[in-house]
Design a protein around this nucleic acid. Structure first.
Ligand SMILES: [Mn+2]
Ligand SMILES: [Mn+2]
Ligand SMILES: [Zn+2]
Ligand SMILES: [Zn+2]
Lengths: 136, 136
DNA sequence: TCCATTTTTATAATGGTTACAAATAAGTAA
DNA sequence: TTACTTATTTGTAACCATTATAAAAATGGA
């Protein structure tokens, strides 16, 4: 069980208070937040927090591979703490983003038509279980 | 063999010169252009063309299902004339976007974990055949 | 403590996109 | 055709997410 500070140190990132809180947030709340959502969530706890710091930190974390940047169905970038490969599903009714752990054949195939594949991003759209039930 | 004008009329869109040219461009050049790329490409031919018209037109076409909006690995929206389902692959070296016609199992599965799936967007990243050969 | 370096912050700038309202074009009835 | 109504295009300003910049603050070592 790795602490937030350990993760930062292992990646040669000085564990400042802002960085700890941002990574902690992403590790605890797996809601695929945007930079603004993270800023809003932490602004109370860290009144001096700057949105630039959030952007800088997310950039650093992403470059180090601690976070994954998600380009879903809008111009906003969503972020998540990197775990195992999985699929994203966004509900068109409630906009909630779900993680799906379906296994896809081609996760294990790294050459298609001669192109070397390094990343798979599978984004599904539809109506989630909750919204389907409500709609009845 | 359906003409551009027919496609527009079938979708209850008046076939103005701007709309014809924009749809024609997307039908002929399958390069997944952004709004700005389309504007740049047509600006010579239609000197009075406004970027707003390009955006309005792309929005109309997308709402009618004539075009597909693609959210790949940036904040810019790419557009393409809707054909059969396929996968996108973007090269990290040359940024070119490739269409791949791999068949994925789950194209035919419309219910995952109780969620109703209506759209599949599979976006791959890596190094394309061309760039691999150049890199040798 | 002093000083150099890192990190954070506020502000301005950028870039893609949208809102708005005026100008133009198209369609229709007399 | 004209007069009038509606649809479409256009230029401009606004918007919003993100990035650049430079000053302020914090950190860490000599
Ligand atoms: Mn996820
Ligand atoms: Mn395509
Ligand atoms: Zn839902
Ligand atoms: Zn390439």
């Amino acid at each position: 069980m790795q602490s937030i500070i350990d993760i930062l140190k292992e990646n040669d990132i000085a564990p400042s208070m802002q960085r700890i809180k941002i990574l902690e947030y992403l590790k605890n709340y797996k809601t695929h937040p945007t930079a603004d959502m993270i800023y809003q969530a932490l602004a109370d706890e860290i009144p001096t927090l700057s949105k630039t710091t959030v952007y800088n930190t997310l950039k650093t974390f992403t470059e180090k591979g601690i976070l994954m940047a998600l380009y879903l169905f809008s111009n906003e970038v969503h972020y998540e703490y990197n775990t195992q490969p999985h699929i994203h599903f966004q509900c068109t009714k409630c906009n909630k983003i779900y993680d799906l752990y379906q296994s896809f054949d081609h996760y294990n195939n790294d050459l298609i038509d001669g192109h070397k594949i390094t990343e798979y991003h599978i984004n599904l759209k539809g109506i989630c279980k909750n919204c389907l039930e409500k709609g009845k």
